[in-house]
Nucleic acid binder design. Sequence first.
DNA 1: CTTAGGG
DNA 2: CCCTAAG
Length: 650
Amino acid sequence: MEKVVEVEGSDEGKFEETGLETSNFVLSSPKNVTDPVVYKLVRVDGNGRLVPATDDELMEVEGLLENEKRETHIVSDTGQALGCISNEVSPSGMPQLESSEGLSQSENTEADTEKLSAYVEITLLCLACLPPDNSSAYVNVDSHCSEQHNKLPSIDEKLQSQIPLQETVPSGAKSSSDDHVTQSGRVEECLKPLDGPLEGGSSTSTGCISSKPDFSKLKGEICLDNLSIKELHEVFKATFGRDTTVKDKLWLKRRIAMGLTNSCDVSTTTFVIKDNKLVKKDNEDGFNNVNLGAGKEHLAVAVEYNEELLNNLSSQIDEHHTTSEVRLGNNVVENNFASEDLAADQRAAKRVRKPTKRYIEELSEAESKEYSGRSIASTKNIGFRPLPSKAHARPARNVSLEGRTVITRLDSLGGFGIQVPCVYRIRRSRPRKNVTALLKFHPSGMGMTATFIKKGFDVHGSQMDNGSMNKVLEAKSTLEQAPEQVAESKKEMTPTDMGQNMGLKYVDPSGDTSDDNVVTVPTAKGGIRRKHHRAWTLSEVMKLVEGVSKYGAGRWSEIKRLAFASYSYRTSVDLKDKWRNLLKASFAQTPTDKGANSRKHPSMPIPAPILLRVRELAEMQAQASLPNLSTGKLSACGGRSVNETRPGYL
DNA sequence: CTTAGGG
DNA sequence: CCCTAAG
């Protein structure tokens, strides 16, 4: 069936290609600012959430690209998106990152590929696909991106296999169609206009042409305006290879139009498609006609779940804007219901990417808690609930946050206004303390959250600070997770891999994969906090040691800045803590060299040499810290020091 | 914000 | 790793 064939290339190839395009795009096109379709370099972190890539990552990617570029292009573009997406999750269902992180260090080449694979999940998110019209918000995010931008090859197949010839030809087909039967070929083109250059052999969907129903188009012109809902449904099915339950005519037309034109710009009210383009009879709104014709350069990833997207957006926005929180606070909760139809629809049809394990957990968790409490509140009730005044629609606008321009657009979902930032940056790493603070605030803990939220709704968020509510929700969804799942890929490097002498240069395998391993940990007060865990790699440890030797223990910020510039996730505090542990370790087990390394599985065994050096440094610094008290001073100043060791402030 | 220390 | 107190 799947004749399509995504290039046989190696996975790496695809990744590379992917990364290449994305990053190129991002890095090299500030011009796109005006483009209605805004892409953002994102990363799918361990949670399965999308997180804006950090500068580090951008640079990383860029760098990698430089290196990989040459070999990268071997891969054809066809189905790239699909490949990319599907590859995000390894067959085992585990995020690719895991495996990559677990890889042991090795040659540079391997290290590089590893890094690349680590970036597999960096994809472009087409936020602009969030349409201004509420009804199709979700669908667009998901389906649109994948279908229109990526041209999933499967569409054709579906058409062929599911749509008997002519079967779907609506009676209302335009009369003109008959006249141009000879041009039936056009039909196919309509479906997959962009494929041309990009698509390799896949476009050879042989019999496809004939199988293609000829709605009112055969002539290259399709008029959706006069079709009935039923007909639209058929057209829809023909176009996307799946049924839809949506009864909204406008929505259907729009979707179809998008499908046929591969354009985001279907904001018109008249739907006549000609030559793969939407013929506009009336002026378009907000968007200019931007036919993403060259889907090639636009690698967009379909956001699998609206929840996912929204949650991300919410959390991200939450980081910046309190006003945004309000809207999101509601939407995040609602979206599950509000989008039910559409979501279900799209979900059934195209599950491009399997949800992350993590995601599933969160979702189910959230569902069991959240939804149980407020009964199956159904989509409608919520939708009809009066909104807090603040949540009313507001014109899209641009906001500048943290020195970055944040382009926001207003989308109303299920009746709620929501501002979606198209370009933003969130602080990754630790969540603001609010979460826990909130929990404390609510003595009874978890159990209450449900009611808490409900109350919030009933009161229209009057007394309740919407912002905090949002946080509660957010927290709730992640809380109460079994503290398990800690079994990270701590394999890192096997003791044997590590040389026994310090001189060895270790390539840090995990590099800057920046996937936060977040684990929730129950707290004494019934609260729960998130714990990021990121095993220290040998190279990191070495850098740390080196840093301490150079700048002295205690100057963590310095060390962080200088020696750990590339490890954005290690804070000075982390360094300090790690050093503390190292000291402990070095003094505790140095005598038993063997003992140290024999310490098998769990914690990464730190090679004796390093421990040794740690101890040396420790002693040195210790002495340095108490200069005048005794003989220490002499030794400290007297060049006994390592390198430029300065008296460390211990 | 950076450190140090406790948990 | 997180949190908090202290400079």
